[in-house]
Write a protein that binds this DNA or RNA. Structure first.
Length: 902
RNA sequence: GGGCGCAUAGCUCAGUUGGUUAGAGCGCGUGCUUCACAUGCACGAGGCCAGAGGUUCGAGUCCUCUUGUGCCCACCA
């Protein structure tokens, strides 16, 4: 058999991926005999390109899914993509722009056609990329948030909320992105510290008293003054009581401003006088409502100033207008001063443009009623967060939840299922709840005529719903909820419907949701609310929140900073397994990961190690023409017992770690076992006597090891399984991906010889240590061993590898050795070295004795302490006593050794 | 302004309900072409566990404060 000494992942990963995809290993269905385990993928945007965050997120999920699958669960990983309204629309708008076109040029229908064809062409890029890193999703179920049945769910949900009175429409101040030209929710307007100025502007006061010709207000956004309709002071602020009898004049515009008093004004900030712009500031909006002020909108959709401003400002961008205005005020000597100021300005989370607060007609969802059951579910522990601390964050947000602006002024998305009758829709009734207005029809399909006036002159609301309004249904809408209109998925409608509902009941609620903390509010919290509201059940019981991927300087990886590492580049260079291995190795519970390309060498090296371990075993089998007819594990000697015990321990630890979502611990344990127990000891020991039993045993342990490793590094393990499978007499079948997870019972092997064997390993360590101390280099030395007669058989069995692993020449069992270097309960070993080397040894010996003595002192001190004896638990005291005994024995041994040498 | 994290080896990080002689990977030093693997093997150096108090028989682990650092939330214009 020709196998390369280097593991080359590329070809192998391609082949095995193909095999998996062509098979049904990843697919899932209701199996009454099996327990379900399900995860819904956080659907990546169709515009998405796989980045390290995806790689981390999806590897975590895949490890869980594969682990559970091997454990015999019916494992379902539901895949899909998100239509990502604004993001996708932006991409297609950009490509239109290259043709010199705008979306308005081609019209809504044509634009949406373009979007669909864009998504058909590029929308599954990220899906292919996920496959490349080994994600074992049930790909046949691939969902999209704009699939017909999914859209049905969105409509149903909207109508349900509408009819329950949880939806309202009205003019409110919202976050407006002037570039995307749409409203955004509060969550989509990320607050960022921005350098700016605080301007102190003088507003003239009518009915002049001497020295009181004006008052001064402070603002960071001077241009909004064009929309001012009032001046506000704190009612307790004595400095400005005189103002209420005066009229304040808005400079440049000349408008008379009312003076209002409100507690919201902080007398200590700025001058204590606030300009009030109800249409362009959230706080002022509230003041405007409360005090019945005028609302003057001064901006167009693109944040240029509109015709409600003086002519010279009309059509000018807000920032340019700001500069112009400040200039004008300066010449009029109305700027008192300006000071540098850092303010938290909202930025569009899609295009990073500074948000403009703006009053406009939007749709909202009342969140408080939805939040309370979702709060309860988490408080009562029905849903658990890992790590736990996110519970607090979640609850804090939920308890202060604000209504959700769900309408977006874009074209790509779920259009709001509300129609207006052009003939009887009554503008005058705008103040009524939307549900009670004449000529408003909320329905799944376009109504034929108006139920009120029978007119057919009907038009749908132009807005679409926030993308998250569809994402929040993901855990159940992906299963086909609400189980109507399934004709698009083929088969007999009724059969499909029944099957889908059954599956839904089987797999839902899902088990684990794996996500980054960034979308806790966007998505996780809302899914919990939606699921409880519409399915009456929690969507998942565990929420695993992982950290952020950072670069080697600790800075968050982002395209704009150019500090990303492309996961696919790593796949190309080192293989998907290396990528996955290193990510899992570094992903401690919830903490951020600092990455650099070198980190992936860890994974590469490990894969290579596995590869070569297999090569070794395979070659031994081949060279020795060993016939492996079955894989019963038959311990031939103590090393076989020992490695089996180690394996069981590792498997048990590994499972325990996975159960508590500690993938890092699990992979470290499996890694440590494979490399440092199996390869470094067991295989090394076996080299001298690779009998057919040994061959079977090594193959058995190897096979169990790659099962443990498979969830983390599926490609290489599957490939090696392929190679092993080629031996027909083994009767191995199927995929490693669906093999049974190793037995995790800690089967204790009670064998006196096993403890002897462990002493043997210790002696090897000690000799190696001594060789280092004595700086023996490669010099082979002779050993003399004194032991009881009955242990000689044991030694006979093991002396060969013992000689090799200690780099010795020979072992002599005759007589009593002159000098004893190593001694334990069972034997003493003498290294025949030159007299000159003795000094080095003695020095080392002394160091060790000193070290032991200080430990003994410490331990004795503890045991003499009455309080310790009184209050420490008995097992701790017992442990301490054992420790002391052990130290003392060792020390005594070393001391007598020293005597002999002296 | 609130809330949540993090400070452990040169670097990146583990360290379970307090009970170690504080660990791993990389890096570093020494010696090895040992017929699976130099993407390897063996050995080794390297830590006042940020600082100060406290609780305790016992603290890297719990409490308080300080310093540094990161994140999230919030309508001080």
């Amino acid at each position: 058999m020709e196998i390369s000494t280097r593991y080359n992942p590329n070809e192998i990963e391609k082949i095995n991926l193909k095999k998996w995809l062509e098979s049904s290993v990843f697919s899932s269905r209701k199996e009454s005999s099996k327990k379900p385990y399900s995860i819904v993928i956080p659907p990546p945007n169709i515009t998405g390109i796989l980045h390290m965050g995806h790689a981390l997120n999806n590897t975590l999920q895949d490890v869980l899914i594969r682990y559970k699958r091997m454990q015999g669960f019916e494992s379902l990983w539901m895949p899909g993509t998100d239509h990502a309204g604004i993001a996708t629309q932006n991409v297609v708008e950009r490509s239109l722009a290259k043709e010199g076109l705008t979306k308005e040029d081609i019209g809504r229908d044509e634009f949406i056609k373009r979007l669909w064809s864009w998504r058909d062409k590029y929308g599954s890029t990220i899906i292919d990329q996920l496959k490349k890193i080994g994600a074992s999703c049930d790909w046949k179920r691939l969902r999209f948030t704009m699939d017909k049945p999914y859209s049905q769910a969105v409509k149903k949900v909207f109508l349900r909320l509408f009819n329950d009175g949880l939806i309202y429409r009205g003019n409110y101040i919202i976050n407006w992105c002037p570039r995307c030209r749409t409203a955004l929710s509060d969550e989509e307007a990320a607050h960022k510290e921005t350098e700016g100025w605080l301007y102190y502007i003088r507003y003239p006061v009518e009915s002049v008293q001497p020295g009181k010709e004006h008052i001064t207000v402070a603002t960071t956004r001077p241009e909004t003054m064009l929309g001012d309709t009032a001046i506000a002071i704190n009612p307790k602020d004595k400095r400005y009581q005189w103002l209420k009898k005066s009229k304040v004049i808005l400079p440049i515009v000349g408008r008379r401003l009312t003076v209002i008093k409100d507690e919201a004004v902080d007398p200590d900030f700025g001058t204590g006088v606030v300009k009030v712009t109800p249409s362009h500031d959230p706080v002022d909006f509230g003041l405007g409502k409360k005090h019945s002020l005028d609302f003057i909108n001064i901006m167009n959709e693109d944040a240029t100033l509109n015709k409600n401003t003086p002519e010279e400002f009309q059509g000018i961008d807000r920032f340019e207008a700001r500069a112009m205005l400040v200039e004008q005020l300066k010449t009029k000597k109305l700027i008192e001063k300006k000071e540098p100021y850092r303010l938290g300005a909202g930025h569009c989370y899609r295009c990073n443009t500074i948000i403009e607060p703006r009053v406009s007609l939007q749709w909202f969802v009342k969140m408080k009623p939805l939040a309370s059951p979702a709060i309860e579910a988490v408080e009562k522990g029905k849903i658990k967060f890992y790590p736990q601390r996110w519970k607090k964050v979640y609850l804090n947000w939920m308890n202060n939840i604000q209504d959700w602006c769900v309408s977006r002024q874009i074209w790509w998305g779920h259009q709001i299922p509300v129609w207006y009758c052009k003939d009887c829709y009554d503008l005058q009734s705008e103040t009524n709840p939307i549900q009670k207005r004449k000529g408003v029809i909320a329905a799944e399909e376009k109504p034929k005529k108006c139920p009120n006036c029978k007119s057919t002159n009907i038009k749908q609301d132009e807005d679409v719903l926030d993308t998250w309004f569809s994402s929040w249904l993901w855990p159940f809408a992906t299963f086909g909820w609400p189980f109507v209109n399934v004709e698009d998925r083929g088969g007999k409608v009724e059969d499909r419907k029944i099957k889908e509902e059954e599956e839904f009941r089987y797999f839902y609620p899902t088990n684990t949701l794996v996500t980054a903390s960034e979308i806790l509010f966007f998505w996780v919290a809302r899914m919990i609310m939606a699921s409880l509201k519409f399915t009456g059940s929690i969507p998942f019981s565990d929420v695993l929140i992982h950290g952020t991927v950072r670069d080697d300087k600790g800075i968050k990886m982002s395209k704009s900073l150019g500090n990303t590492i492309d996961p696919l580049e790593i796949v190309g260079k080192y293989g998907a397994d290396s990528l996955r291995f290193s990510l899992m190795f570094l992903a401690a519970s919830g903490s951020d990961i600092q990455l650099s390309t070198e980190k992936f060498l860890m994974g590469r090296n490990f894969c290579n190690k596995i590869w070569n371990a297999y090569r070794f075993i395979a070659s031994k089998i081949e060279i020795n023409k060993i016939n492996i007819d079955n894989l019963n594990y038959l311990p031939e000697d103590e090393s076989d017992q020992w490695i089996k015990e180690q394996l069981n321990q590792a498997a048990s630890d590994c499972s325990a770690a996975l159960e508590k979502y500690r993938m890092d611990e699990a992979i470290k344990r499996a890694y440590d076992f494979f490399w440092h127990s199996f390869c470094d000891w067991y295989l090394e020991i076996s080299k001298d006597n690779f009998s057919s039993t040994k061959a079977k045993n090594s193959l058995f342990i190897f096979l169990e090891s790659i099962k443990l490793l498979h969830p983390f590094i599926p490609f290489i393990t599957e490939e090696i399984f392929n190679l092993i499978k080629k031996n027909p007499s083994l009767k191995l079948d199927g995929f490693l991906a669906e093999a049974r997870w190793p037995n995790t019972k800690k089967s204790k092997i009670n064998s006196k010889n096993l403890s002897l064997f462990k002493e043997l390993l210790k002696s090897v360590d000690e000799i190696r240590d001594l060789r280092g101390v004595l700086a023996l280099g490669q010099e082979k030395i002779d050993l003399e061993i004194t032991t009881e007669e009955k242990l000689k058989v044991f030694w006979q069995k093991h002396h060969k590898w013992f000689i090799r692993l200690t780099n010795s020449n020979s072992i002599d069992f005759t007589g009593k050795p002159a000098k004893i270097f190593i001694q334990n309960k069972y034997w003493a070993i003498n290294l025949k070295i030159k007299a000159a080397d003795l000094d080095k040894f003695k020095n080392n010996l002394e160091k060790k004795i000193n070290n032991l003595n200080s430990l003994i002192k410490k331990s004795e001190g503890k045991l003499k302490n009455k309080k310790f004896i009184q209050s420490a638990p008995p097992q701790i005291i017992e442990k301490e006593k054992l420790k002391l005994r052990d130290f003392s024995q060792k020390s005594a041994r070393l001391k007598s050794l020293k005597k002999i040498i002296d």
